[in-house]
């Protein structure tokens, strides 16, 4: 629902990463996205194309999205289960004493930048 807003946050973070690493151009970005992060990958990709084109640092950079499965933990029967399939109720005991172990992540995993050779060629 707010994919464009989070894309702006991603680009802001990338600007800082680029400055810290003395990088002037990013050619690819890999994000990790939890299944229940409330961000929809296809919308995210569309917003990325639109917003990245306006920023010289990331213009044309490819966006890769790695999904992270949502897994919940039941504290009553001490078992894990898939959150998307079963929600808050444990499929083993039916209890609701459960919480999310992983799956709401929204991380910038890594970026690709031109290697030293190309930079040397350009310079």
């Amino acid at each position: 629902m707010h994919e464009l807003g989070v894309v702006f946050h991603v680009i802001d973070s990338l600007k800082k990463v680029a400055a810290e690493n003395a990088v002037e151009r990013i050619t690819a970005v890999t994000l990790q996205l939890g299944e229940v992060s409330a961000v929809i990958p296809s919308y995210l990709t569309d917003c990325w194309k639109w917003a990245a084109a306006k920023e010289p640092l990331v213009a044309g950079a490819e966006l890769a999205i790695e999904p992270i499965k949502a897994i919940s933990w039941c504290d009553d029967c001490k078992k894990q289960y898939g959150t998307v399939e079963h929600g808050r109720s444990c499929p083993y005991c039916g209890g609701g004493n459960t919480w999310l172990l992983q799956g709401n992540e929204f991380m910038i995993k890594e970026i690709e930048v031109p290697g030293p050779e190309e930079e040397a060629d350009n310079g």
């Binding site: 690493n21 992540e105 991380m107 910038i108 930048v113």
Partner: peptide
């Protein structure tokens, strides 16, 4: 030869905002 360098970031998108 891959003429790219990979930089690990491992940072939550919401980290700056938080």
């Amino acid at each position: 030869m891959d003429n790219v360098r990979v930089i690990e970031v491992k940072q939550s998108v919401f980290a700056d905002n938080n």
